[in-house]
Amino acid sequence: MGRNHARVLHALDGVELVAVADPVADPGSAPAGVPLVRSVAELADAGIDYAVVACPTALHEEVALDLAERGIHALIEKPLAPSVRSAETIARAFDSRGLVAGVGHIERFNPALRELRARLDLGELGDVHQVVTRRQGPFPARIADVGVVYDLATHDIDLTAWLTGSRFESVSAQTIARSGRPHEDMVSFIGRLSSGAMTSHLVNWLSPLKERVTIVTGERGCFVADTLTADLWFHANGSQPTEWEGIRQFRGVFEGDVTRYAVVKREPLLVEHETFRDAVLGKEADIVTPEQATDTVAVAEAVLAAATNRTVIDLDPRRTPAPVR
Rank of each mutant, 00 (worst) to 15 (best):
A144M: 02
D231C: 03
L113K: 00
S86N: 04
S39E: 09
L304E: 15
H183A: 14
V63C: 07
D286T: 12
Q136H: 12
E16D: 15
L159D: 07
P241H: 11
A285Q: 13
V148Q: 03
A285N: 10
S29Y: 01
R167E: 12
R277L: 14
G123S: 07
G196F: 14
L113N: 03
A118V: 00
R7D: 14
G282A: 10
R70C: 05
V149Y: 05
R119A: 09
W162N: 10
E301S: 10
A74G: 04
S96H: 03
D121G: 13
A161F: 01
A262D: 12
G47A: 05
A54M: 10
F94H: 03
S39N: 05
T294M: 14
L59H: 06
V297H: 12
L80T: 05
V100S: 08
L232A: 08
A58E: 10
V20G: 09
R212A: 13
A262T: 14
L80R: 07
D22R: 08
D45N: 09
H183K: 06
G28E: 14
T217Q: 13
G2F: 08
V20H: 03
T164M: 11
R85Y: 05
T175E: 13
R70F: 07
E184Q: 06
D316Q: 05
K283E: 10
N110Y: 08
A300I: 02
L120H: 06
E16H: 08
R97S: 01
I157K: 02
D226E: 10
R70S: 01
R260G: 04
T275K: 04
S96R: 15
A177G: 13
I48K: 06
V34E: 10
G256P: 04
R220M: 08
V171G: 12
A236K: 11
L122W: 03
V40I: 13
D45H: 08
V187H: 05
L65G: 01
F139G: 05
R266N: 02
E115S: 15
A279P: 02
G126S: 04
G282T: 12
Q292A: 15
V297K: 00
T89H: 09
S239W: 09
S172R: 11
R92P: 01
T320R: 15
E88H: 03
P182W: 04
R114H: 11
L59G: 03
A30W: 06
I143M: 13
P268T: 04
R92G: 03
S207N: 15
Q240N: 05
P138H: 06
R92Y: 08
E219H: 11
T133A: 12
R119H: 09
T89E: 09
G180A: 01
R248Y: 04
S200G: 15
F94V: 11
A51W: 05
A279N: 06
D145L: 04
G221A: 11
R325F: 13
V258M: 11
G47M: 04
L152D: 14
A91I: 01
F109V: 01
T227R: 01
G252N: 06
Y261H: 09
D185Y: 06
N237D: 15
T296S: 14
L113P: 02
N237Q: 10
Q240E: 15
S86G: 02
I215E: 13
T294V: 03
A51K: 10
